[in-house]
Design a protein around this nucleic acid. Structure first.
Length: 673
DNA sequence: AGCACGCCGACT
DNA sequence: GTCGGCGTGCTC
């Protein structure tokens, strides 16, 4: 074929479709019509015909090529929705790797990475781009302090992976603004990255953490170089911030879990705070946690990676032992003053019910000087109910779940199914009188308020969180994870519900508790006592000696022996019995070169709704194979048979597919044993 | 998802 | 013969 003048070779766009269907999770080739040639660039949003004309699917151009890979007739690209290349090649590669690892669809990951388009915001941004306004220059030479001789600086400059033990203290970043010292460390690391002309991504579990980092950063770098990307902000703000990240200039991008997918041309650092916080686990398919995404992105981009926490997760400890991640500790060391007491609470007055006298006296003394933190296990008024007369726990009559109550005069309701227990009576003694067994924040507040008359009582829980409290005396009652930062630090800390927090039945209770307690203790003023009630043994020792790393390290041999995470990986497979059976049978036995790596299957067990769930355990070396196998099972299942049903009532024929259920979830940490 | 294709039983 | 119900498979 001879090319005529002006007749260029055909251009083909390879398109990722925005679809939840697993069988559409691959690239589709479309011919680019001449009129769209200019706009049809990798990363732009497009509309394309699918199957028959008239049906239009949305998607992104992943790449353009002149080589035809598809043997059939190509359809033409229908429309380029916007000329902004929102799906950068780097993010696309990340999405693909992440989805492969978790046996999910790349488009599901892209949905987390690219916020919904806001036309006005985009137009305004494009205009601003043309005006060529320059962002601030950052010309400082910051350093990460508190870790000896520039250890972290050089690791950032060299693109290494670190597990940083955070400094347990609070810090005043600007007059009257106090944050956890850890937030300063992350801000300094980000500033250091920025100074080297590269972008830093800082991922936080929740908004309160994010605020602390932003406050610490504001004291270090120009505000217009800080972008916040989190699900909490309105779509328009989020999209505006996202577009800023597409600009070439380096910046600091702060946000919650999906911020690890932010587009960043010259990525220099990913910093993750408290990687074991469950808020770092994405609740949407394919359920990948910040930690795993960060590790993959680090590997792809060669940027530095910094995990920081007060209590090292067992996952991170495993990577430290493999020498994949380098541990870094504060220098000079900072040791909080932790006092364990296994004393049983004094039985004297009701107000003392949960508080031993040592803790009591400590709190009273400290209250003369400033705020005192009381950490309790549960939010709200009084969660668990029992019969007033015979003490039998109150249970739901529908499903046997525990009954809870939201306030002093409210009707109890089931914790599991939500049924309201209006006419409750005890099964055992027929009494209709109900009593509170455990106390939440509000009840603790009432008790303590009575015990310390005239003292200010501040309650902070999930519903009414306080970010900060001032330095004046106050009793601050907080649920774990909702502790405000006190100006100058708390003068004393009481960790009350140790036993109850440890009573949860989960593989990770011990490390979860260690994390909750460590994070609270880190809010103490220098040398202020932190009293932990009702906890002894290795956990108490780890807190007193502030050696959480050693505790995590000691967990690993047991986990290895029992084949528990993080020493092996898990995947749960949920679906109808035959489907799950098939998926398990299709699993590989072993992989060449990794003959010692094994797979075993627990279950299946009943999962309700006529479904079963099996748990697959496998060594890390088999991860890719297991994911590939489960992925093809998912696709086989979703392209499967149709069932039709004739309605007996009306005789009308309704055609439907039973929702093809085969759900796969990798590395679920909520697995009970 | 949603739609075409194709395979067997009942029909002018 | 062929009309159409219904399972199966594909989508550039």
């Amino acid at each position: 074929m001879t090319a005529q003048a002006g007749h260029e070779q055909q251009l083909i766009a390879r398109v990722m479709l925005e679809s939840p269907l697993p069988q559409l999770d691959r690239l589709f080739d479309y011919a680019v019509p001449a009129a769209l040639r200019e706009q049809a660039r990798p990363g732009v949003r497009v509309k394309v015909p699918l199957r028959s004309a008239g049906r239009i699917a949305r998607g992104y151009i992943v790449e353009t090529t002149e080589a035809v890979e598809f043997s059939g007739t190509l359809s033409e690209l229908d429309e380029v929705t916007s000329s902004v290349p929102v799906l950068t090649p780097e993010v696309w590669n990340l999405a693909r790797r992440v989805s492969e690892r978790a046996a999910g669809s790349a488009s599901d990951v892209v949905r987390l990475a690219v916020p919904p388009r806001q036309v006005r915001v985009e137009k305004a941004w494009q205009l601003e781009q043309q005006s060529g306004e320059q962002p601030s220059r950052y010309s400082a030479n910051p350093s990460v302090t508190g870790y000896g001789d520039r250890v972290i600086d050089s690791a950032i400059d060299a693109g290494r992976r670190l597990a940083v033990a955070a400094i347990p203290a609070v810090h005043e970043v600007s007059p009257g603004v106090w944050v956890g010292r850890w937030a300063v460390t992350l801000a300094e690391a980000a500033a250091r990255t920025l100074a080297s002309g590269r972008t830093a991504i800082v991922a936080l579990p929740d908004y309160r953490d994010q605020q602390q980092v932003v406050q610490a950063l504001s004291a270090l770098v120009p505000l217009d170089l800080i972008s916040q990307l989190d699900a909490r902000q309105p779509n328009a703000d989020r999209y505006r911030a996202f577009l800023r990240c597409l600009e070439d200039a380096p910046r600091v991008i702060v946000g919650n879990r999906s911020v690890v997918y932010a587009p960043a041309g010259r990525l220099g650092l990913i910093a993750v705070w408290d990687d074991a916080d469950p808020l770092h686990t994405e609740p949407l398919s394919p359920y990948v946690s910040t930690r795993d995404v960060a590790l993959i992105r680090q590997e792809q981009s060669g940027c530095a990676l910094l995990f920081a926490s007060h209590s090292r997760s067992t996952w991170l400890e495993r990577l430290v032992e493999l020498a994949y991640v380098t541990p870094v500790a504060p220098d000079p060391a900072v040791l909080p003053h932790v006092v364990p007491t296994a004393d049983q609470p004094g039985a004297e007055a009701a107000a003392h019910a949960r508080i031993p006298s040592t803790a009591w006296n400590t709190a009273r003394r400290a209250l003369e000087d400033g705020p005192v933190l009381v950490q309790v296990a549960r939010p709200g008024y009084a969660p668990v109910l029992a019969c007033q007369d015979c003490r039998t726990p109150a249970r739901c009559r529908v499903c046997e779940g525990a009954l809870r109550i939201g306030g002093a005069r409210q009707t109890p309701a089931c914790d599991l199914c939500g049924a309201i227990a209006a006419d409750w009576h005890c099964r055992h003694c027929e009494s209709t009188r109900i009593r509170l067994v455990t106390a939440g924040t509000a009840r603790t507040a009432e008790e303590l308020g009575r015990a310390f008359p005239g003292t200010r009582v501040i309650v902070s829980d999930g519903e009414r969180p306080h970010l900060t409290v001032d330095a004046k005396p106050a009793l601050v009652i907080a649920t774990r994870g909702a502790e405000p930062v006190a100006a100058g630090g708390y003068r004393a800390i009481l960790l009350l519900d140790g036993e109850r927090m440890l009573a949860r039945e989960s593989l990770t209770v011990a490390e979860d508790c260690l994390r909750w307690w460590s994070n609270a203790i880190a809010l103490a003023a220098p040398r202020a006592p932190a009293i932990i009630v009702g906890v002894g043994g290795a956990l108490a020792r780890a807190l007193v000696t502030w050696s959480q790393q050693r505790f995590s390290a000691a967990e690993l041999p047991d986990r290895r022996a029992l084949r528990f995470p993080p020493m092996v990986r898990l995947a749960t497979v949920t679906g109808r019995a035959e489907t799950v059976e098939q998926a398990i049978c299709a699993l590989p036995d072993s992989v060449d070169g990794h003959e010692s790596a094994t797979i075993d299957v627990l279950g299946p067990v009943d999962a309700g709704d006529g479904l079963v769930r099996a748990t697959i355990r496998f060594d890390y070396a088999l991860g890719a194979e297991v994911a590939r196998s489960l992925r093809s099972s998912i696709i086989r299942n979703s392209t499967g048979r149709t069932k039709r049903q004739t309605s007996k009532a009306t005789g009308t024929k309704t055609s439907f597919r039973p929702p093809p259920v085969l759900r796969v979830r990798f590395d679920d940490t909520e697995i009970l044993e």
